[in-house]
Design a protein around this nucleic acid. Structure first.
Lengths: 132, 132
DNA sequence: TTCACTGCAAATGATTTGCAAAGCA
DNA sequence: TGCTTTGCAAATCATTTGCAGTGAA
């Protein structure tokens, strides 16, 4: 983990290493600052919320995390490979859509003077059993 | 305008009618509550910010407005026809992408028990002259 | 040792809410 | 007239920031 951070030019402090371990300990995850903070608490790690926010921002700036464009709170995705999301509008949960399961063709030309820096596709879904 | 609101089962109060006029007075627009509030002020209309927020929510619930999935503040789009957006990551501005200029194929099946209720595509762009 | 990082708590900004007064059907 | 809506300001919620103490190189 320290190497991973160092490779991204981020000084591997204890807090950052721990947060990194929590983020990438298992499968890809979708987290909020609050969630990471709680995970730290549970892991017995003493980290302040402010530091969690700072760290997530740094990780994102360094390209270690992706921010998912969903209204409301900041949600970060630990999967930085190209992919998209299903967004459960009832619960706010996110599920990955592997890139190869979605095809985007005919990307239009951006406004003049602009360069495309990324594309986010959010497929809104809702439980069909829930509301009649 | 009163008819439009009535058709959506929204009681056409003076404030709502005025807000509606401001929203749909011209071309399609992308607005925040704050923006609408300022427009009201300029138009000499006495409406409180809270009412603007409430009204925008109602209009959205009624399907008269679309919410654009961009992190940060709530942005509403007066164009409710299917379309997508360019998102200027430097300024936060949005530009419509007509539906026919973007093709989405192979929409993957949603998680079991879920129904797709909509798809949002946000193409992030940035000025290419800006930062070297 | 030095400068970056962290923690705390207060500050901020956007949005919501409670309650009394006013408006629409 | 009765019930909905509005307005104001205070309350919330998520996130950021200032500053003094702590830690990494």
């Amino acid at each position: 983990m320290a190497n991973k951070l160092a490779a991204a030019s981020i000084r591997p402090t204890r807090q950052r290493v721990r947060i990194g371990q929590i983020l990438w300990q298992s499968e890809h995850r979708h987290v909020t600052a609050e969630k990471v903070y709680m995970d730290c608490q549970e892991a017995g790690e003493r980290v302040s919320l402010a530091t969690v926010y700072n760290t997530l921002h740094q990780f994102r700036s360094a390209g270690l995390l992706r921010e998912v464009p969903v209204n409301g709170n900041c949600v970060y995705c630990t999967n930085i490979t190209p992919h998209h999301h299903f967004y459960n509008t009832e619960t706010g949960e996110l599920y990955d859509i592997p890139q190869d399961q979605m095809h985007l063709s005919q990307l239009p030309a951006p406004p003049s003077g602009m360069t495309v820096s990324g594309v986010d596709v959010v497929v809104r879904v809702k439980p069909n059993g829930g509301a009649a």
